[in-house]
Design a protein around this nucleic acid. Structure first.
Length: 262
DNA sequence: ATGGTTGGCATCCAA
């Protein structure tokens, strides 16, 4: 008896104050895998207990205060790697990959970049270039693979509410868009755009603009990308805008994709 | 509108 394969992604903007929202969402949607970013918790303090008590498996890589990525899954995950730079002693906790039901899943929290003149923006461009190298080693169009997470790049003018005002924003500047486009290349298909071609669909609304959500002044920067093999299995893909309206929400919301079994 | 809010942690940084 085959069953659908469900994958979701969520930038929690700190996991611990979002545990209620995340556990409720998992119970309702029952994904095979939920990828989390910005967990903002050291591994020793990761709230694995509440997930396991609710029947979920977790793998995670975090650090103090910033960044942090994780997978929550129905079944234990195989092939977990949590370094983009395996040879180096330290790196930001922005990368984790796994294998689930025959699909390789890469979960990334791409650097935001701070400002165009910041070294952090150069780090963002390099991070994307280095990811391309990592993908080139193991992923081909015929391989069932997904790249999910907070990409911190809005790719085109319809992927943010105010493109003209944000030409020099680190998440929309031509250099960031070029770097992302280069990494995605011909390999990675933005699966949301397989189903929805129109504007006004966002996954992030800035806390600093209290009317951002009601006016829908958002950004589509959280993505599920797939190889050709996975695009062919895509049934539906959907942004859970309502989860952004809950009490004490993240500034991002959930993106969920449903695939046929194989 | 060079503003505004949130989280972690420390009296500011990051987003």
């Amino acid at each position: 008896m085959s069953r659908d394969f469900i994958v979701a992604t969520y930038n929690a903007n700190s996991l611990r104050p979002r545990m209620g929202i995340v556990l409720d969402w998992l119970a309702k949607h029952r994904p095979d895998v939920l990828a989390l970013q910005e967990t903002k918790v050291r591994d020793a303090e990761f709230p694995a207990g509440p997930f396991r008590e609710a029947g979920w498996n977790v793998v995670y890589r975090g650090q103090k205060s910033y960044n942090g990525v994780a997978f929550v899954s129905k079944e234990p995950l195989a092939g977990v790697r949590d370094r983009l730079y395996p040879g180096l002693p330290e790196e930001d906790a922005r990368y984790i990959e796994c294998e689930c039901r025959g699909v390789r899943i890469f979960n990334t929290y791409i650097p935001q970049g701070a400002s165009l003149d910041s070294p952090k923006f150069q780090f963002k461009l390099k991070y994307l270039a280095d990811l391309k190298e990592a993908f080139a080693k193991s992923v081909k169009p015929s391989v069932p693979a997904l790249w999910v997470g907070d990409m911190n790049v809005a790719q085109t003018e319809i992927d943010l509410a105010r493109p003209k005002e944000n030409q020099d924003h680190v998440c929309f500047h031509a250099d960031a868009r070029r770097a992302f486009r280069e990494t995605a290349g011909e390999l990675w298909i933005d699966l949301f755009r397989e189903k929805e071609k129109g504007p006004g669909h966002y996954t992030f609304w800035d806390y600093r603009f209290p009317t951002a959500l009601s006016k829908n002044l958002g950004w589509r920067i959280d993505l599920i990308l797939g190889t050709r093999a996975m695009a062919g299995r895509l049934r539906e893909i959907w942004i859970d805008r309502d989860a952004r309206k809950l009490e004490k929400p993240s500034d991002h919301t959930f993106l969920k994709a449903v695939f046929s079994a194989d």
